[in-house]
């Protein structure tokens, strides 16, 4: 059925191209998030970045994680942020003042140690290829891990979600009475 036997010359090229596009999407989206002065564009950049990241997961043979990334980050997180923005100010424009230079410099200085640390960590780490090829159909394993090994974490997250729903209800209720 599957006929993915491609000539050895073409396959690495396409693969590298795909990787470059995905990394470009992830980084480009992230840069848009930070640099634009309009919040709505930031959210769009976040969506782009999440999609690129999902593509990278797919590239690494974990389609389930990729689809979940899209479903949760684009479908839920970005839409919720957008919705909140629209409710707060209709146009989402930042006031006309340009950014102060000192703030930009301070932000760069604050970000620098983190970036250097991460780069050092990545450069020094010993990357080992996985001993076993991980299959695409890991959904049953995932489900079992969630309900056995990570059962407590799973339940705690449910409690957090329940609390946030209750909190939203309380806020909405008091708002309605006024």
């Amino acid at each position: 059925m599957t006929m993915y036997l491609t000539p050895e010359k073409l396959y690495p090229l396409v693969s590298a191209l795909l990787f470059a596009v995905l990394v470009g999407m992830t980084l480009g989206g992230a840069i848009v998030v930070v640099c634009t002065s309009r919040l709505v564009r930031s959210v769009s950049g976040l969506a782009l970045s999440s999609t690129g990241l999902a593509g990278l997961y797919y590239y690494l043979h974990s389609p389930f994680l990729a689809l979940m990334q899209i479903l949760i980050y684009v479908g839920a997180v970005c839409v919720t942020i957008m919705f909140a923005l629209m409710l707060t100010d209709a146009h989402g424009e930042v006031s006309g003042q340009p950014r102060e230079t000192i703030k930009t410099v301070a932000a760069l200085l604050a970000g620098l140690p983190l970036a250097v640390g991460l780069i050092l960590l990545i450069a020094k780490a010993r990357w080992m290829p996985p001993a076993v090829q991980v299959n695409a159909g890991t959904v049953p394993d995932l489900g079992q891990a969630l309900l056995t090994r990570f059962g407590l974490v799973f339940e705690l997250i449910s409690v957090v979600l329940l609390l946030s729903i209750l909190g939203a209800l309380v806020v909405a209720r008091s708002g309605r009475r006024n």
């Binding site: 059925m1 689809l67 479903l71 684009v74 479908g75 839409v79 629209m86 959904v139």
Partner: peptide, 29 residues
């Protein structure tokens, strides 16, 4: 493509639909 997670894929990408309309509605000013 006989994709193992086909059903999940349909619902994951359906999420873009809302985002698109939302952006269109907002960008129209």
């Amino acid at each position: 493509r006989n994709f193992n997670l086909g059903l999940l894929m349909v619902f994951a990408f359906a999420a873009f639909n809302v985002f698109g309309i939302l952006i269109g509605g907002w960008a129209s000013h």
